Amino acid sequence: MAERARERSEPKNWEYDAVKLYAQGWSIRQVAQRIGCDYGTIRRVLIWPATLRTRGSVPRRTAALAFEI
């Protein structure tokens, strides 16, 4: 049984918005509430273009750079 490769489709407008808000310093929960999605959905969207922040640390690269905003 061959496994299908998961390809990343083109990001949707709300995904760009989520990345921008996260890059501005919003928490994942704040972004989720603003966009109207649950925490897990936003986290999955952010994992692709960005290094997620840990509590109290600075990310090595920002989400804005990954999307070339």
Score class of each variant (00 low, 15 high):
27 S>H: 04
37 C>K: 15
11 P>C: 05
32 A>T: 00
47 I>L: 15
51 T>S: 11
5 A>V: 13
8 R>C: 04
59 P>N: 12
18 A>C: 05
65 L>S: 14
19 V>I: 15
32 A>I: 00
18 A>S: 14
2 A>M: 10
4 R>N: 05
37 C>Y: 12
53 R>G: 06
58 V>P: 03
32 A>K: 00
64 A>M: 10
65 L>V: 10
20 K>D: 04
69 I>S: 08
43 R>A: 13
54 T>W: 08
19 V>A: 10
34 R>W: 01
38 D>W: 07
35 I>K: 01
63 A>H: 03
40 G>Y: 09
39 Y>H: 15
61 R>S: 13
61 R>M: 14
10 E>G: 02
41 T>G: 03
10 E>P: 02
14 W>C: 01
2 A>V: 11
23 A>V: 02
56 G>Q: 07
31 V>Q: 02
9 S>T: 07
50 A>R: 01
17 D>R: 10
10 E>L: 10
12 K>S: 05
6 R>H: 06
68 E>V: 09
37 C>W: 08
45 V>F: 03
46 L>F: 08
67 F>H: 04
49 P>G: 10
6 R>V: 12
59 P>A: 15
55 R>L: 14
49 P>V: 09
10 E>C: 04
20 K>L: 06
34 R>V: 02
38 D>H: 15
25 G>P: 07
36 G>S: 12
48 W>D: 06
20 K>G: 01
8 R>E: 12
50 A>Q: 03
31 V>Y: 03
35 I>V: 15
68 E>T: 08
69 I>H: 04
24 Q>Y: 04
59 P>M: 09
64 A>I: 07
60 R>Q: 13
42 I>T: 10
46 L>Y: 05
33 Q>P: 00
27 S>T: 15
27 S>V: 04
57 S>M: 11
7 E>R: 13
10 E>M: 08
31 V>T: 13
14 W>E: 06
56 G>S: 10
29 R>K: 13
66 A>M: 07
54 T>P: 01
30 Q>E: 15
64 A>Y: 05
22 Y>H: 00
31 V>D: 01
40 G>C: 06
12 K>A: 05
15 E>F: 02
6 R>C: 04
46 L>P: 03
25 G>E: 07
22 Y>G: 00
37 C>A: 14
2 A>K: 12
